[in-house]
Every structure is written in structure tokens, then in C-alpha cells.
Design a protein around this nucleic acid. Sequence first.
DNA 1: GAGTTAATTCTAGAATTGTCGAAATAGTGT
DNA 2: ACACTATTTCGACAATTCTAGAATTAACTC
Lengths: 119, 119
Amino acid sequence: MTRRVEQAAEQLKALGHPVRLSVLRRVVQGPEAGTPAGELQSRLDIPASTLSHHLATLSEAGLVVVAREGTTLRYRADFGTLRALTEYLWQDCCSGGAESKSETKSGTKLKPSPCCGRD
Amino acid sequence: MTRRVEQAAEQLKALGHPVRLSVLRRVVQGPEAGTPAGELQSRLDIPASTLSHHLATLSEAGLVVVAREGTTLRYRADFGTLRALTEYLWQDCCSGGAESKSETKSGTKLKPSPCCGRD
DNA sequence: GAGTTAATTCTAGAATTGTCGAAATAGTGT
DNA sequence: ACACTATTTCGACAATTCTAGAATTAACTC
């Protein structure tokens, strides 16, 4: 159980909630400078305190970053973290599933995931 | 809050636990026919009932598939689901973070995620 | 059918998470 | 300092999740 596994699990868990996943999507698609918490709140239509709690979760997991601008707080995605997580997931868990989308030119059913033996 | 968001959240949540993430890694790297629950159990060194619970969670989320072979149950990864999830995560949440890895030939900081307006 | 092995389901207690109103904090303008 | 807005923190309760021992089911062998 390396540190990386724990970290990835924490981040995946943070994404594992409909509201938080929606928040992330909005934030990713929003302006580079970040999306104000208030805007997220009115779009998602949930109490501010609830949203704030979810934002804190995303933030603690390192998936979003916050910056104050006057009285409003702008949240933006941390693409570095996001990309690293997706890559981890892909490499360690998903790649090699060559069967799933018709057949690859080279033979069928190659052994999955190349990166092994380090957990 | 489309169905897809809910589903992706459920799957991400299932991955959001160190034990389950470890299980998935083992299963992905294991034999195509699937890895026996007992083998997972001895490797991870947790009570069988606890592991069984986690396997059920992964299974309900559609991330793994089970098949009986005599008295043993073999779990294997469902690469279709896994790939779809990774793709979803990448496209909707991560792509566009072009800054994170040096600079892409074409200009800097393009607007993130292409797929919008459907949540 | 009795015995054995593999794994799940049952059950229950502890711990964590989710929700949200009320109160507090931070920043801005007057 | 006061008022106003944006957002968080506090506090409390409900709901869910985690863990693991005990009981159970399933399949095989003799």
C-alpha cells in the first residue's frame, strides 16, 4: 500500500460524489481564472454551506485550487493533479483492455497493464 | 445531473478506497481468467469477509466481473467499464490542461474540455 | 451424506460522511 | 464604524460506510 495508492484513492473518493463531480466539471469548463463559489452554488442549487463543504473536500484532495478576488473566492481545476490521476488510473488499471473496442491489428488479448510489482 | 454523472460518481467512489484500488490493480495485472478471491485475500492480508464486501462494491459498480470455477470465485477487471470511465474523466475533466507538461507547439493555454453543456 | 475448502451473507458496533441552518469571518463601500 | 455581500465554519443529526467475527452457502471428494 504505497503512498501513491492512498493518494489516488483519496482523490478518486473526492470525485466519487455526484455534486463534487458536477462541481469539477463546471470548474474545468469555466474560466481559467476560476469560477466563483457563488456561481457554482446558484447553478447547482444547493445550500452554500453544503457546497462549501464539498469544495473543501475537492481542495484537500488537491483537485482544485482557490484564490480570493475581493469578496469572492474563485475555484479552478488543478490540471496537474487531474492529469496525474487520470494517467495513474489509465496505466495501472485500464490499459491493456484491447478487446473492448473491436480488435487491434496485432493479435488479440494481450496481457494488461505494463506497470507492475510496486504496491 | 445526468445519469452518466451519477454512474461515474459511483464508479469513482468504488475506486476511492485504498483496499479496493489495490484489489483492482491486482486483478488488472492478474491472469485474464480472473484472480481467485482467496489469492487476493492472502496477498492483501485482510479478513475474508472484509474483502468480500469490497469485491461486492467493485462488482456493483461494474468495474469487475466474477465467475465461478469449482469452489473458487475468480474476479477479473471489466476493461470496457474501466476504459469508459477513464475516458469520461479525461474528456470532461482533465483534457486541456496543456500547461502542465511544458508547452504544446500551438499557443499556450487553450480553453479546457471540449465536451460541454450536458449535465 | 459427512467432511473439507472457498467464499459469501449476516449482524452489529465504530467511524466517517453528507446535509444544512445559524453564526462567524473577510472584504468592500459609505 | 456600520452596512452589505460572499463564503466559510460551527454544530447537530441522519445516513452511509467500514470492519470483522460468526453463521451460512456452494462445490467437490470420499
